[in-house]
Design a protein around this nucleic acid. Structure first.
Lengths: 342, 342
DNA sequence: GGGGTGGATGTTAGCGCTAACAATGTTGCT
DNA sequence: AGCAACATTGTTAGCGCTAACATCCACCCC
C-alpha cells in the first residue's frame, strides 16, 4: 500500500506502515528510551521493509551537526602522510564521523586557509590539519577559529591542540645509536629547513652530539626526495670524512646509499647510515636500512580522539591549555649501521 | 544593527541588512540572471559584512543534492592507490564536489558493501570504488545501484563504468622490452591471483611470449610486498635459469633485486629485471629499476569525470553501454635491464 | 493610450527531520 | 476511590533554504 513509487521513503512512510506517528519513528531511530519494545519492533520492521534511510541533510539542519570532519592533508605520495590519513580515517569511522578530505600540492598558509574555506562550505564540525611547516601552524593559530582545529605533526604549536611524533626523540635516538657504535660524530642529511619534522630531528641530533661532546657538522639540507639524498650522499662520499650519517627520511637515505655505493664506499663497513620513517621498502634496501619508525596510525587515532573531545565538550568554555600529544619514535636496527672501524 | 550575536548569520540576516527579501539573496548566491547589478552588489557586501555562509544542509534538503561523492579505497600505503586517490580528490574539487572517503583494510565484497552503506548514510550522490579484485567488481555489479558507481582499476567489469590503466598493455610492453633485448624468455613474478591488475599483467606477459614463440614459464605469485619478491627472487637465483624477470610491481622488484644481489647474481649483467608502477624510489634502487609507469592522476581524473557525467545526465534513462576508459601505460627504461649475454 | 511583454522583486509553501510540549494510558500509593 | 508520577505516544512548530507563483513596474508597439 504505502510503498512509495518514484521517491525514496521518508519517515512519514515508515510511520504509516508501522501505524505510529513519525515522531515515534524518530525516537526509535535515535534510541530514545521510552518506546515500547513491541512498537520499536514494528517500526524496525517497517524500516527494513521499505528500505528506509534517514535523510542526513534534514537531520543536520535541525540538529546543527553534520558529523563531518574536514581534513587538510599534504602530498599523500609520501608514506608518512598517507599512513596518517589512513589512521585518521579509521578512527573517525569507528566513532561514526565522516571525513571530507582536501589534499594540497603546496604547503602554504594561503592554500591551507583556502582548503579550510572549501571545507567550511560543507559545514564540517571541525578540522584536522596536517601541518608540517611552521608557517602553516602559525597561520592556523591566527585564524579566527569558528570550529575546533587539531594540528597533526604541528611541532610545538603555540595555542593549538597538537598531535605529533616525537621528532626530537627520534633524532636523538638515531644519533645516540651511531655514537654508541663508536662513531666520533654523526653527519646529518636533513629535511628542508621550514619543515617542523626536519627541525625536530635536527634538534635531537644536535642535542645527542652536544651531550656526547662530539663535533657538530653543518646539517646538509635535502628536499625529502631520493634525488637530493643522492646528491648529498655523493658529496659526503667525495669528502671522505663522515663515518656515520643520519638521514632525515628513508627516501633520501635510499638516494644516499646509492651514491655511496657508486662511489665505492661500503655501507656499513666504511660508513653507517640510518634513516627515518621505516617505509615498507627500507627493509630491502642495499643494505637493509636501520631507521626510526613512527606510529602514524596512532597519530591519526589520537588526532581524531582529540578533535572529538573538543567537539563533544563544546560546553567547556574554560580556555584550558590546548592538549598536546606526543607519540614516541622507535629505533629499528637493521644492517646499514655498524661499529666504527678502529 | 542586525549583526546577530551567538549564532551564525542566516539568509534573512543578509536580506535585512541589504534591504531585500531573502529570496533575492538566494538568487544572488545562485547566480540567477534577473537581479539588478546594484542590488547584487548590495547583497554581496552584506554577505561579506556578516561573514555569511550558506547552510549546506538546508540547501541539500531542498535541492536533493549534497555535492558529495563517496570513495571506497584500499590500502593507501601503496603508491598506486594513494596516487589515484589524490587524483580523484583534485578532480572532484575542481568540479566543486566534496569527497567522503572510506579506506578499507581488507578487499572483500562484504567490506565494500558495508563501506558503501556507511557512505549512504551521508547521502553521497555517487560512488567511486577502487576495485582491484574480481570479487569486488562482481559484487558491485550485483548491488541494486540506487546511485551511480564508477569502478577504478576494475578490469573488464561486465556492466559497470570503469576506468583503469592498461595492465595488459603494460605487461606486454615490459615483456616485449626484454624479448627485444634478446632474452630467450621472461620469467614473471606476479601479484596475487585474485587481483585484476595481476591478471592483466600476466595476460600481457603471456601474450608477448606467445607471439614471440618463447616458452611460457609458470608465473610465480607474490603478495605485492617486498618480502615476497625477495623470497621468489631467491628461488630464481638458486635455479639459475632465468635471464630476464618481469616483476608485477616495484616493491616486489626491490625484494627480488636484493635477493639476486645477495646470491651474487648481478643485475643487469646476469639477469635483467623490470618492475611496474614507477614509484619515486625505483630510480634509486640498486641498480635503478626499469619499470612501467602508470598515470594514476589521470585515472582519478577520468573516474571523477565519468561519475560526474553520470550524475549530471540523470535524465539519460536509456541504458547506454557503460563507459570504459583505459589509460595507457608507459615504459621507463633505466639500468636494470640489458641485452642477454650471448 | 491600452495592453502586452518581460525584468526585478516579494510572498508563500514546503523539503524531512527533531525538540518541545500536549495528551493519553498505567501504575502505585494513600 | 482518587490522585500523583511516570511511561508512552501524538501534535505542532520550526531548522534555513529554494521553487513556484504573485506582484509590480518600465517599456514598447500598434
Amino acid at each position: 500500500m504505502s510503498v512509495p513509487v518514484g521517491r525514496s521513503p521518508v519517515m512519514a512512510d515508515v510511520a504509516r506502515l508501522a501505524g505510529v506517528s513519525h515522531q515515534t519513528v524518530s525516537r526509535v531511530l535515535n534510541g530514545h528510551p521510552n518506546v515500547r519494545a513491541e512498537t520499536q519492533a514494528r517500526v524496525q520492521s517497517a524500516i527494513e521493509e521499505l528500505g528506509y534511510r534517514r535523510n542526513s541533510s534534514a537531520r543536520a539542519l535541525v540538529t546543527r551537526r553534520t558529523g563531518v570532519i574536514g581534513v587538510v592533508a599534504f602530498d599523500t605520495t609520501h608514506y608518512g602522510p598517507a599512513q596518517t590519513l589512513s589512521g585518521i580515517e579509521h578512527a573517525a569511522r569507528a566513532d561514526g564521523y565522516f571525513l571530507s578530505v582536501v589534499t594540497l600540492q603546496t604547503v602554504t598558509r594561503e592554500a591551507v586557509s583556502e582548503a579550510m574555506d572549501y571545507l567550511a562550505q560543507q559545514s564540517v564540525e571541525g578540522y584536522i590539519v596536517i601541518a608540517p611547516k611552521r608557517a602553516v601552524v602559525e597561520g592556523l593559530a591566527d585564524q579566527p577559529a569558528e570550529r575546533p582545529v587539531v594540528a597533526v605533526e604541528g611541532g610545538e604549536a603555540p595555542d593549538l591542540p597538537v598531535v605529533c611524533v616525537d621528532q626530537f626523540g627520534g633524532g636523538y635516538l638515531a644519533t645516540r645509536h651511531l655514537l654508541d657504535l663508536g662513531h666520533r660524530t654523526v653527519h646529518h642529511i636533513a629535511g628542508p629547513g621550514d619543515w617542523l619534522e626536519a627541525e625536530g630531528r635536527i634538534a635531537g641530533w644536535r642535542r645527542a652530539l652536544e651531550e656526547a661532546g662530539a663535533p657538530v657538522p653543518d646539517p646538509l639540507h635535502g628536499d625529502w626526495r631520493p634525488r637530493s639524498g643522492y646528491r648529498i650522499g655523493a658529496q659526503l662520499a667525495e669528502e671522505r670524512e663522515a663515518t656515520a650519517v643520519f638521514v632525515a627520511n628513508d627516501q633520501m637515505a635510499l638516494g644516499a646509499l646509492r651514491a655511496l655505493g657508486e662511489a665505492g664506499v661500503r655501507v656499513p663497513d666504511h660508513v653507517s647510515v640510518i634513516g627515518f620513517d621505516d617505509i615498507p621498502e627500507s627493509e630491502f634496501f642495499t643494505p637493509p636500512l636501520t631507521t626510526v619508525a613512527q606510529d602514524f596510525s596512532e597519530v591519526g587515532r589520537r588526532g581524531i580522539g582529540l578533535l572529538i573531545d573538543l567537539l563533544e565538550d563544546a560546553t567547556d568554555t574554560a580556555p584550558t591549555t590546548p592538549a598536546r600529544s606526543v607519540v614516541p619514535a622507535r629505533l629499528v636496527t637493521r644492517v646499514s649501521t655498524a661499529p666504527a672501524c678502529a
